[in-house]
C-alpha cells in the first residue's frame, strides 16, 4: 500500500512537472508579451527603458531558462504576481477557490444524488415509459450547451420574471438567503448538465448487478424488493458509480468555467478564463497547475476508493 502510494505520487509529480512546462511554453506562444502590454499602458517608455525592462524580465531568454527561473521561484513558494490585479497570485486564487467549492460542491451533491436515484429507478422500470423519460432527460442534459442553458435561465428568471439575480456574488449583508438566490441558477445549470451522464452510468451498473446470480438467490430466499435493493443491489452498483464520482472530484476545484462566466460567479473557472483571455500569464499558469494537481490527486483517491469499496481488487494489480 505504502509503496503503491509512493509510486503513484511520484508519477503524478512527474506528470505535473511536464505539464507545467507544456503550459508554460504554450502560454508563451499567446499574442503579445508582458512588455508589449506594459508599453501600451505607458507610451512614453523610451527604447532604453524597454531594453532595461526586457533584460530585467528576461523575456528574450530561451524558454527553458525562463521556465527554470519560474520553477525555482515556485518551488520556494513564490508564485509571482498577477499582471492585471497587481496582487500576489495566491491572494487571488484562495478566495476564488472558496467560491468555486460552494458552487461546484452544491451542484455535485445534488447531481450525484439525483443521478443515482434516477439511474436506479430507470433500471428497475427498464423498458417502461418512466425509463424512456429519464433517458431523454439524461440525453438532453448531455447534449445541451451549458452557456446557452444559462443564457435562457437568465432571460427567463432574471429578465422576464425578475425572481432571481442575473448573476454576480451575494453581498455579505444579504446573508444566507442572498447566497441561495445567487446560487439557484448556476447550480441548476450544472446539475442539468452533469446528471445525465452519471444517471446513464448508474442505470447500466444497476442493470448489470440486477442480472447477477446473487440477486436471484436473494429473491429466491424471499427477500422483499426493498431489502434486496438496498442490501444487495444498490451497494454493489454503487462501486463503479462512486469511482466515477471520485474521478470527478478533481473537477470541483477547477470550477465550471462557462457556467461561472455566464453567471459572473467569482470562482476558479471564471478566474482561469479571465486570466487566459486577458493575457495574465502568471495567474493563468498557476491556476492551471493547481487545477491539474487536484485532478491528479483525485485520480489517486479514486484508485484507493476503488480498492476500499471492492475487496476483489488489490492495489498492486490494477486494470490498465
Amino acid at each position: 500500500m505504502g509503496r503503491f502510494l509512493l509510486g503513484r505520487i511520484t508519477g503524478a509529480g512527474i506528470v505535473l512537472l511536464l505539464k507545467s512546462f507544456v503550459i508554460f511554453a504554450l502560454i508563451g506562444l499567446m499574442p503579445g508579451d508582458p512588455l508589449d502590454l506594459m508599453m501600451n499602458a505607458n507610451p512614453e517608455t523610451t527604447p532604453e527603458q524597454m531594453a532595461h525592462l526586457r533584460a530585467m524580465y528576461g523575456v528574450d531568454l530561451p524558454i527553458t531558462q525562463r521556465y527554470w527561473t519560474w520553477l525555482v521561484a515556485a518551488l520556494q513558494g513564490d508564485f509571482g504576481y498577477s499582471r492585471i490585479q497587481h496582487r500576489p497570485v495566491l491572494d487571488i486564487i484562495i478566495p476564488a477557490l472558496g467560491n468555486t467549492l460552494i458552487l461546484t460542491g452544491a451542484a455535485f451533491v445534488l447531481s450525484t444524488t439525483l443521478a443515482v436515484t434516477l439511474g436506479t429507478i430507470a433500471a428497475l422500470k427498464r423498458g417502461t415509459w418512466i425509463d424512456r423519460i429519464i433517458n431523454l432527460f439524461a440525453f438532453a442534459g448531455i447534449s445541451v450547451p451549458s452557456f446557452w442553458l444559462g443564457l435562457l435561465m437568465i432571460y427567463l428568471f432574471a429578465v422576464r420574471l425578475g425572481w432571481l439575480p442575473a448573476g454576480g456574488m451575494p453581498r455579505p449583508e444579504q446573508g444566507f438567503g442572498g447566497m441561495l438566490a445567487h446560487l439557484v441558477m448556476p447550480v441548476m445549470t450544472l446539475v442539468i448538465v452533469e446528471t445525465g451522464g452519471l444517471a446513464r452510468y448508474a442505470r447500466a451498473a444497476m442493470i448489470e448487478v440486477l442480472s447477477q446470480d446473487y440477486i436471484r438467490t436473494a429473491r429466491a430466499k424471499g427477500l422483499t424488493d426493498r431489502r434486496m435493493l438496498v442490501r444487495h443491489a444498490l451497494r454493489n452498483a454503487l462501486i463503479p458509480v462512486l469511482t466515477l464520482v471520485a474521478l470527478q472530484l478533481g473537477g470541483l476545484f477547477s470550477g465550471a468555467a462557462l457556467t461561472e462566466a455566464m453567471f459572473a460567479w467569482r470562482g476558479m473557472g471564471r478566474l482561469i478564463l479571465e486570466a487566459i483571455l486577458g493575457n495574465d500569464y502568471n495567474l493563468a499558469l498557476v491556476c492551471l497547475m493547481f487545477v491539474t494537481a487536484t485532478i491528479l490527486i483525485a485520480n489517486i483517491c479514486a484508485d484507493i476508493a476503488y480498492t476500499w469499496l471492492d475487496p476483489r481488487i488489490s492495489l498492486g494489480k490494477r486494470r490498465r
Partner: peptide, 18 residues
C-alpha cells in the same frame, strides 16, 4: 498525460496562440 489536461483552458490557449 493528455487525459489529465484541463481541457477547456488548454483549448482556449491553443485557440488563442499567435
Amino acid at each position: 498525460f493528455m487525459l489529465a489536461m484541463p481541457a477547456l483552458p488548454v483549448l482556449i490557449i491553443l485557440a488563442a496562440i499567435d
